[in-house]
Design a protein around this nucleic acid. Structure first.
Length: 255
DNA sequence: ATAGTATGCCGCCAGT
DNA sequence: CGACTGGCGGCATACT
């Protein structure tokens, strides 16, 4: 099932009854079911992924989790193989269909053939996973207005020293209460949230400027660049230099 | 790489 | 009684 180019809010369950019945029947006769990108929504309809693992384009992860809560979804993963016969295969964001195709070729025709095809068609394995592609966006639909206003303040002040302490002081809430409510509302502890904002800003600077990693480290709020590098790698899966190399707009493409 | 200090986290518990 | 607040302290992590 290829990406069916749906919008998450446009997805209607039970709309493709005949197709889904057919998929289920084919599965019963031993077929391997595969999806790319948002195609997993259609496979989700079969119920075959209930209690199983799958991946989807990270942009649809929340919508998928809402529609098919029985499936464990891993949007940061490139390819997820599950089912007792390894017959339920899903691939994640957009061009991870490369990985899916190469995997299938390797599975049925051998690794050497897969490698040949990859070379001839310039297909790429996404060896580093999809974490480097993910964009952090804090949750704001939680309905806790005090925390929301703290988030708003933070989005412009994350690079100051001790942002958590400052944020708490501005909120007029007790520290214990603030931290508890912040974690509940956003799904992240205050410090973890600050780190995501800092790293996200650093990513933009790596993509769009020529600033050195040391300078970027300082600008997003870290005096110790060694610490920043370690943190960056932990959050994104890539070191800052490697990230820049991968995502920077090449010279010839700049206006 | 390492050491040292500061800061934050979280279970616990009492209070509202 | 349950849901929330908020102080305390030991421990972990963040940061320099």
């Amino acid at each position: 099932v290829p990406s069916i180019l749906l919008r998450p809010e446009g997805w209607q369950k039970d709309r493709y009854r005949r197709l889904v019945d057919w998929l289920r029947a084919m599965h019963g006769r031993g077929a391997v079911l595969c999806s790319a990108c948002s195609g997993i929504f259609l496979l989700g309809e079969t119920g075959l992924f209930d209690g199983k693992d799958a991946t989807v384009h990270f942009g649809y992860a929340r919508a998928f989790a809402a529609a098919y809560p029985a499936t464990r979804i891993h949007p940061e993963r490139v390819l997820v193989i599950s089912g007792v016969r390894e017959e339920l295969v899903s691939s994640g964001a957009s061009t991870t269909w490369h990985d899916l195709v190469l995997y299938l070729i390797a599975r049925y025709a051998g690794a050497t053939t897969a490698q040949e095809v990859a070379r001839v068609f310039a297909l790429q394995w996404h060896q580093d996973g999809l974490t480097p592609y993910l964009i952090f966006e804090g949750k704001t639909d939680h309905g806790d207005s005090e925390i929301e206003s703290a988030q708003r303040w933070l989005s412009n002040h994350f690079s100051v020293a001790n942002p958590v302490e400052q944020m708490i002081r501005r909120s007029k809430l007790a520290a214990r209460t603030f931290k508890r409510r912040f974690s509940k509302a956003t799904g992240l502890t205050p410090i973890a949230y600050v780190q995501r904002l800092r790293i996200e800003d650093a990513k933009r600077r790596l993509e769009r400027t020529e600033a050195s990693v040391d300078e970027i480290s300082w600008r997003v709020g870290y005096e110790d660049a060694a610490f920043f590098r370690r943190l960056f790698k932990r959050v994104t899966g890539l070191a800052p230099g490697a990230y820049r190399k991968r995502f920077r707009i090449p010279e010839f493409a700049r206006p």
